[in-house]
């Protein structure tokens, strides 16, 4: 008999999620489209003033990208719950945290990577200074990963409820405020020619901590959702 190792479950879920995302690749384009629509509306609302747009561009791109990631969050566990796959994951002789880590990684890869491509382009269109581009990209990588980890924990809590789209955003706001502060802080620091490494270092530290804790929290939350 072949008993499944820790990594086999992780790999199975990661492969499955990437395959599912590939089958529905149209869905993956939605967040990017949303981010572009929102970011493109800002110049119309604020006027085509280069200086003003350049000053707010980093913040706009950051917030738009994070909001766009929310679109896919609500459905993260819901479809698995409805077709009984979630129960199979909970019942499998595997560490549920490892399976959740795979689920979160897949979500981040599928949702965030197109946004990480679109983010700098939107930044350029809004007139973000060239020296701020690398910092914007780094901030987007770190903050989107943090949002994926924190958000999936909350999505696990709301998976069993009827209405959760708005609730999820409400619950996420307090968790994401520090992330936005530090990510945008780094961008505005580089624009002013100040050292920008400190806020990004803080974000990386937070990411390292969340990387360890969020899958465990996610597994606990799912057990509550399934009343186990």
């Amino acid at each position: 008999m072949t008993s499944p190792g820790l990594f086999s479950g992780f790999r199975a879920i990661l492969q499955r999620d990437l395959l599912l995302a590939w089958r529905r690749r149209g869905d993956a384009a939605m967040p990017v489209l949303y981010a572009m629509i929102v970011a493109i509306l800002f110049p119309f609302a604020l006027g085509p003033n280069h200086q003003l747009l350049a000053r707010v561009s980093g913040g706009i791109v950051l917030v738009t990208v994070l909001l766009a990631m929310l679109l896919a969050l609500d459905n993260l566990f819901r479809s698995d719950l409805e077709d009984g796959v979630l129960a199979q994951m909970v019942l499998a002789p595997q560490s549920l945290s490892a399976l959740m880590a795979a689920r979160i990684l897949a979500y981040w890869l599928v949702t965030a990577s197109p946004l990480l491509v679109a983010g700098p382009i939107l930044g350029y269109m809004l007139g973000l200074p060239a020296q701020a581009q690398p910092v914007l990209f780094l901030s987007l990588v770190l903050s989107s990963a943090l949002l994926a980890l924190l958000g999936s924990m909350l999505a696990a809590l709301t998976a069993g409820t009827r209405r959760s789209g708005m609730l999820l955003s409400l619950m996420l706001l307090p968790l994401i405020v520090p992330v936005v502060i530090f990510a945008a802080g780094a961008i505005s620091a580089v624009e002013q020619g100040l050292p920008w490494i400190a806020p990004l270092a803080w974000l990386s530290a937070a990411l390292a901590l969340t990387l360890v804790l969020a899958p465990v929290a996610c597994a606990t939350a799912l057990r509550i959702t399934l009343d186990a």
Binding site: L157, T158, T161, R163, L167, L170, M171
Partner: peptide
């Protein structure tokens, strides 16, 4: 508000 909302979202 999130805590109250989550509590009431469950049946």
């Amino acid at each position: 508000l999130g805590i109250i909302g989550l509590y009431h979202a469950f049946e």
